[in-house]
């Protein structure tokens, strides 16, 4: 079983709405992958997130988490333990008045042995580099720090997958960078599957796979290089294109050289330098 989350022809409609929020979505997320889900507000990407751990149940189709059907009520806590979730507003997901007690909340709910909870909490806080803050009151932390505590709270449940639902939307650039660094580490070193929902294009660049949603449907799915090369389609979907990608495509269009779907500034600099080299030679 190498897919951790599997959507099969999933439809979802909110009770008070006449339009589908998720329309006939089929999707497989591979174990250990780092997937970015992009889309403007109301494109259905947050609904997609909530469908992955039984917070919402599809009206049609089936969602399997590690082979467990999210509609199967007897497995609900297994599913939520497998797929942890981090939300947008860091203030509204911290329960306790002391950092370490909040991180312990999940494992406590799962009935984990106290001594093991202690170990998990310490390890989780160290992983997100918040261990020195374990005795602090959450409301005195910065947004980025709070969000890292929230991530630690999820890791302490030892999930196989973490879904971050616009977890960086309310943070300042520094906080956003810290979160990105943290989840890359979780993905690379702990092998946790990451589903990262965002509308910041530059954050999607470090994923292995980018999924773009628009109008309740998946409209693009591929590597960041593949997806970002379709600048026109992205604009139609109400999204940005990274400046360097746009510049390198312009270079190709103007006939100065060949664009290789550039995503970072360094790549862009190298490309321009190589064009100049060729010209000189």
């Amino acid at each position: 079983m190498d897919s951790i989350i599997k959507f099969e022809n999933v439809n979802f409609r909110y009770e008070d709405s006449k339009d589908l929020a998720v329309n006939n979505v089929s999707l497989e997320i591979k174990r250990g992958d780092f997937v970015a889900v992009l889309g403007h507000n109301g494109s259905g990407k947050s609904t997609l997130a909530k469908l992955t751990n039984s917070i919402l149940l599809p009206q049609d189709g089936q969602i399997l988490v590690n082979g467990m059907d999210t509609a199967d009520e007897s497995r609900i806590y297994d599913i939520r333990q497998t797929v942890g979730m981090v939300f947008q507003n860091p203030d509204n997901q911290i329960v306790a008045t002391v950092v370490e007690e909040d991180v312990a909340f999940g494992p406590e709910n799962l009935g984990v042995d106290p001594r093991e909870i202690r170990e998990r909490v310490d390890a989780a806080l160290k992983a997100v580099e918040m261990y020195e803050y374990r005795q602090h009151e959450p409301h005195k932390l910065s947004g980025g720090q709070k969000q890292r505590v929230a991530i630690a709270g999820v890791i302490a449940m030892q999930p196989e997958c973490i879904v971050l639902d616009e977890a960086t939307a309310m943070l300042d650039p520094r906080g956003r960078k810290d979160i990105l660094k943290t989840i890359r580490m979780l993905n690379e070193q702990l092998g946790i599957t990451v589903v990262f929902i965002t509308h910041f294009m530059d954050e999607a660049v470090c994923a292995n796979r980018v999924i773009v949603m628009d109008n309740a449907e998946i409209i693009m799915d591929g590597t960041p290089q593949e997806v970002f090369s379709k600048t026109g389609d992205l604009r139609v979907a109400g999204l940005d294109v990274p400046q360097v990608t746009e510049l390198s495509q312009w270079i190709e269009k103007e006939g100065f050289g060949i664009s290789k779907n550039i995503l970072s500034t360094d790549e862009c600099v190298d490309m321009i330098l190589s064009i100049l080299e060729v010209q000189k030679g």
Binding site: Q243, L247, T265, C268, I272, L273
Partner: peptide
């Protein structure tokens, strides 16, 4: 802005 970084990078390489 990223575009500024690109040109700073170029300048660093003597362009």
């Amino acid at each position: 802005p990223p575009i500024t970084r690109v040109f700073m990078g170029l300048a660093k390489h003597g362009v």
